[in-house]
Write a protein that binds this DNA or RNA. Sequence first.
DNA 1: TCTTGCGTTAACCATTTGGTTAAACCATTC
DNA 2: GAATGGTTTAACCAAATGGTTAACGCAAGA
Lengths: 205, 205
Amino acid sequence: MPETTEQLILEKAKEVFMQKGFAGARMQEIADAAGINKAMLHYYFRNKEKLFKVIIEEVVQTLAPKLGAALHGDDPVTEKLEKVIRLYIAMIKENPYMPMFLMHELSQNRAEFISVMKRRVAGFPDFPAFFMQVIQEQQAGKIKPINPIHLMMNIMGMVVFPFIAKPVVVNLLDLPGAQFDAMMQDRADIVVGFMKNALRVEKRE
Amino acid sequence: MPETTEQLILEKAKEVFMQKGFAGARMQEIADAAGINKAMLHYYFRNKEKLFKVIIEEVVQTLAPKLGAALHGDDPVTEKLEKVIRLYIAMIKENPYMPMFLMHELSQNRAEFISVMKRRVAGFPDFPAFFMQVIQEQQAGKIKPINPIHLMMNIMGMVVFPFIAKPVVVNLLDLPGAQFDAMMQDRADIVVGFMKNALRVEKRE
DNA sequence: TCTTGCGTTAACCATTTGGTTAAACCATTC
DNA sequence: GAATGGTTTAACCAAATGGTTAACGCAAGA
């Protein structure tokens, strides 16, 4: 099944943009990676920004529905969060640069970026509904009280951090990269356990 | 007290590098910010990489001792972690770009960076000792069992994430920036609470 | 006052880099 | 097989960007 040139470019551009960021990425490098002439990039995508925007679109379109699916439905909060954790950790394992990429580019306030994000894609998570559920379970005494947004940030922080901070951790702790990766095998279980403990209400005595 | 040109350059270079990253920063922009000629940058720091390296050095030298101080001493683990959380959140509030900057540049595997990190500065935290303490408290039944490295990553993730992800969160949740900042006031308390709950062992009945 | 040398500037240079153009290639169609 | 039109290439261009140079200013010392 022969890949079209356009697909090939997108694929390679994604790799380069994700690893180097917009400012660090070079059109020439993308062309080389795709084994084509630099002019092709412009033929298919006009310019660097347009190409970048397409990648962004793709990334957002991949991430949002995953979150949407996990938070949707009737499961209790802790189960939904467990889904989020496992889903995202699995995905980041295959795409380690994605979180860093997203955050770094977003922090540059690229207008294109924001607009893509704002235009909610199909399957976009229904945050208000989920936050409501969190509050209800708290009032019912099923989980510890905590602001749902903070809770969400706690989860995402624990999920995302190890991947963007791998170089820091490895260097700070003098840990071989392979050993770090091995540790990451358990990561999902550990975060899930930590989260459940943190939300667990003590039994009344 | 008149600031020397060198200090002025460092100050402005730090701002620009931290916000734009190495690849995104422009020597001209730094010069403009400092209100001087571009040649001055090269006069004092020879080239972009050298200037960058000095900034890196400064950042690492600021961060490591803070962690070292918090982890040092005889306090119980949860208190030490509480210190870490409060110290870092306070510092990041004054320097919101620092975490993003550090991680993004680290992820590029800049050799200079790694070398600076490896050369342990004064006050560098004694991780092995702290990890040992964590394990001892776990065996004594004072805190829930968890791999100390995972624990540390959980903490740092929760501390750092909101700052690097502010644009993502704000856009995803349609939250006014000011409201987000207001929420950040409580951040330290919430992370401390979350951490303590997660580590708390249930009372035996 | 003349000299010395650090600090500073404007102008300039070379390379990188995003982007363009005109011609060539090649499969499909008439 | 000539014409058509999408695809690809090599060569080129202009702007951006990191870096250099030569001259100037000016305070401190001789």
